[in-house]
Design a binder for these strands. Structure first.
Length: 800
DNA sequence: TGTGAGTTGATTTTT
DNA sequence: TCAACTCACA
């Protein structure tokens, strides 16, 4: 017997509905949202109000009501949110193929099918900020634009702004009085032309192309509207015009559009998010049903009250009454420190204390800051206290140079027109193709309006190019072609091949630099990711998908919720998460609100919302901190407490240290006597720590305390980013090797091996998993290459 | 063409 | 503070 009624329901009032186990655990408001399926729906969900729960239950309810999974589309802003949703739905309604993912991923998918309609090829590349900046630079060079009064960054932002507002290159008109408008007007079309020539898109293009596609092809629009009859959009307050246009276009014939969001948590205005989209949703869809989820299940009364008091200072919002049945809880703390160093150390000491006394575990804590740069001191302090932590941030895996280099080779294999990829690796590792040679190739490409690689193929005929250079280029092209023959091989094999053929691995291995060894470890990690990808996509031919996956992952996706570590991240990255104890540091003028937002009232409100988001992540304990002196551009500079702190009901809070900048604050006030420092400790030197602090410290598996090298290897072993409940290479490694044979994982990329018949050789690539793992070996004699199924082979590692 | 020292300039948030 | 860029030299 089925648990769920299979008949279509359109109304919560049905007796049937009230009895379903899917619905009993919900409040009235939540149930109303879950059961409203036909027609537009706006869910205004305050922080901690069980929004994800409602969304997933709603999808499960739709499925239970007989709506086919393929008609449902759930759009989010981050992969993290999509994964979370998918995981929860899996528990409610297992094995249902509902498409859940980010806007960008959805658009990429649509574009693969309709590429030619917008002038792309279906194997188009997705450029990240780096790549597209490079193309912009070429465009600027081509137009011969002088940048003395502005920066490429500013131009890029202006173009991005235009795209987010669906202003295409041919229709761009500079606003009057907009200084760089004239430049943008010239460069934008050139940039776009170059992108198309490379068959590439930037992040904004993904959305713009799809929006325009839907606008200009009524038949396509109609089909997709028909296909995706039930659409849900998460974090609707963060949609920009392009996203709004896409969603609307898909909800004309079937206006079953459910959006969830909270105007108070809109923090992406700088990315073109338009608060009006949610504030005026009711105008777009007059028949909309509005559900307000105002009860908070996350935070204590104290925390929620502080959040509420703060956000009331915003004018552009929908009034909400946040309330909770949770206990009052501890008072929110507001702490002042003499310097950033005291701030960092005191927080670290406090966390260490709580962990050592068994009150809390590292994973219970989160530290939020406005800018990534602020993480350094805190990181240092946590390290001193031997507290394991994870930073969700900045130089994430796929942004590292070595990873991007290798991926650029892959990108070129997939899309030989990709100029950005070619420029990246034409001389990496160095192969004697210098600046002047590249300039000549670029010139040819420009004159003939062809991709750089095609121009490079003509190196022999380019006049004025030294013979030596021409030969180097020819060799490079030949090497690319050779790699290209492996295009359909498993991705892991391909990556291994790139490392060998290009000499990339050799260069790093022969290097003395510590840094280069780290790079090798990172590449090892890339191989692991590739192997896991292959495992999930049997049948090969997944290169394009692999590249797409790697360009659409973001820092925040790296957050590991199940490891026992203190989490550090920016306030932006914190959205959607919750922690028992939260610290928000550096609540200072110029940082929070940020310098660039202080003058503009609208931006200032966004900064306030950012703090609101941070505050409402806390479940039990919240501490806001600021320091009277902070390091700025390498120099200690006096700081002023954030004006937002003045908006909080300070009489309800626990004030620690100083008196908010008025008069002479006591110089040192810490949370317990022992952690007081002497005034001389102001400088940058860290005081020597007591030895025993290190000795009796960790009772947990501490990763951060390891030496960098060891840490690197450990990290490499932890499968990252792509793992998703599937057996990983590491899992297999831990298990038994097939009886009698050598373990399939005994061999590493680049390793020297011995074969009884063929003699010594080197592993140039590996692929496959378990008993099917295959090694490609190139033998010394004759340079011949052969493949071996490892468990059946007579290969032995050749130790040096 | 590649390397290394020295200089300069910039530092928000992210798909 | 630190990374990116420039310039001189091998």
């Amino acid at each position: 017997m089925s648990l769920f009624p299979m008949d279509r329901l359109s109304d919560a009032a049905s007796d049937h509905a009230l009895r379903s186990p899917l619905l009993d655990s919900l409040t009235d408001a939540q149930r109303a949202a879950v059961c409203h399926i036909e027609g537009p729906l706006l869910i205004l969900a305050g922080p901690g109000s069980g929004k994800t729960r409602v969304v997933t239950h709603r999808v499960a309810w739709m499925l239970a009501s007989g709506i086919p999974a393929r008609q449902i589309l759930a759009l989010t802003f981050t992969n993290k949110a999509a994964d979370e949703m998918r995981g929860r739905l899996e528990r409610l309604a297992p094995r249902q193929a509902v498409w859940m993912g980010t806007f960008h991923r959805f658009c990429a998918r649509m574009l693969r099918s309709y590429a030619e309609l917008v002038g792309l090829r279906e194997n188009f590349s997705i450029y990240d900020t780096d790549d597209s900046r490079k193309i912009l630079q070429i465009a600027l060079d081509e137009e011969g634009i002088d940048l003395t009064h502005t920066s490429p960054d500013a131009i890029a932002q202006a173009i991005s702004w235009a795209k987010n507002n669906l202003v295409t290159a041919d229709r761009y008109e500079p606003r009057r009085g907009h200084a760089i408008g004239g430049i943008v007007e010239k460069v934008y079309p050139t940039y776009q032309k170059l992108m198309l020539r490379s068959s590439a898109v930037d992040f904004d293009d993904l959305l713009v192309h799809v929006a325009i596609l839907l606008k200009e092809n009524p038949e396509v629009r109609r089909q997709l509207d028909e296909r995706y009859r039930y659409i849900m959009v998460d974090e609707y307050q963060d949609t920009n015009l392009a996203q709004y246009t896409i969603v609307r276009a898909l909800s004309i014939d079937h206006p079953n559009l459910a959006v969830t969001g909270d105007p108070d948590q809109s923090i992406y205005g700088w990315r073109g998010a338009n608060l009006s989209n949610i504030l005026e949703f009711e105008k777009d869809y007059p028949k909309v049903k509005v559900v307000r989820l105002e009860q908070n299940y996350r935070s204590t009364k104290s925390i929620l009250h502080i959040a509420d008091q703060l956000i009331r200072h915003n004018i552009r919002r929908k009034e909400k009454d946040l309330f909770t049945d949770n206990p009052q809880g501890n008072r929110v703390r507001l702490a002042t420190f003499p310097t950033q160093r005291d701030e960092a150390e005191t927080i670290a000491e406090e966390i260490a204390h709580e962990v050592r006394t068994g009150k809390r575990r590292p994973r219970d804590f989160a530290i939020f800051y406005r800018t990534n740069a602020l993480s350094r001191q805190i990181e240092h302090a946590l390290r001193e206290q031997v507290i394991p932590y994870q930073i969700v941030n900045g130089l994430e895996f796929y942004q590292r140079k070595e990873i991007k280099d290798v991926l650029a080779y892959l990108q070129l294999v997939n899309n030989p027109r990709s100029d950005a990829a070619l420029l990246r690796i034409i001389n990496t590792p160095t192969r004697g193709i210098g600046k002047s040679t590249i300039a000549k190739i670029q010139e040819v490409a420009r004159d003939r309006a062809i991709p750089l690689l095609d121009a490079a193929r003509m190196a022999g005929t380019i006049s004025g190019l030294a013979k030596k250079s021409a030969v180097a280029v020819a060799k490079f092209v030949a090497m690319l072609d050779l790699i290209g023959t492996k295009a359909t091989a498993p991705v892991e094999e391909l990556v291994g091949y790139v490392l060998t053929e290009t000499g990339y691995r050799e260069v790093l291995e022969n290097s003395e630099a510590e840094e280069d060894h780290e790079r090798l470890a990172n590449l090892e990690e890339l191989l692991t990711a590739a192997s896991e990808f292959d495992l999930r996509n049997p049948g090969g031919a997944g290169l394009e998908q692999f590249l797409e996956d790697s360009s659409l992952v973001a820092d925040t996706d790296a957050f590991e919720s199940d490891s026992d570590k203190v989490t550090m991240m920016t306030l932006h990255a914190a959205k959607g998460l919750e922690f028992p104890a939260v610290y928000i540091v550096a609540c200072e003028e110029g940082l929070l609100p940020h310098e660039r937002s202080r003058r503009d009232e609208e931006k200032l409100e966004e900064e306030r919302r950012l703090l609101f988001v941070g505050i409402t992540r806390a479940m039990q304990d919240l501490t806001l901190t600021w320091a009277q002196y902070r390091m700025f551009r390498g120099q200690q500079a006096p700081a002023v407490a954030s004006s937002f702190l003045m908006e909080l009901p300070r009489h309800e809070m626990e004030l620690i240290g100083g008196n908010m900048g008025r008069g002479s604050a006591p110089r040192y006030l810490a949370w317990d006597e022992e952690s007081q420092l002497s005034p001389e400790d102001d400088d940058l030197e860290f005081p020597p720590r007591e030895q025993d602090a290190l000795i009796d410290a960790p009772m947990y598996d501490d990763v951060n305390q390891l030496e960098p090298e060891e840490m690197q290897t450990r990290k490499a072993k932890e499968s990252k980013t792509f793992s998703s409940g599937i057996v990983t290479a590491a899992d297999l490694l831990a298990g038994k090797s097939p009886s009698g044979g050598i373990s399939p994982y005994a061999f590493k990329h680049g390793m020297m091996v011995q074969h009884p018949e063929y003699g010594p050789g080197q592993i140039v690539a590996l692929s496959g998993n378990g008993a099917k793992r295959v090694a490609n070996v190139r033998f010394m004699e004759g340079g011949e290459e052969r493949k071996f199924v490892i468990v059946h082979s007579k290969l032995t590692p050749l130790t040096e």
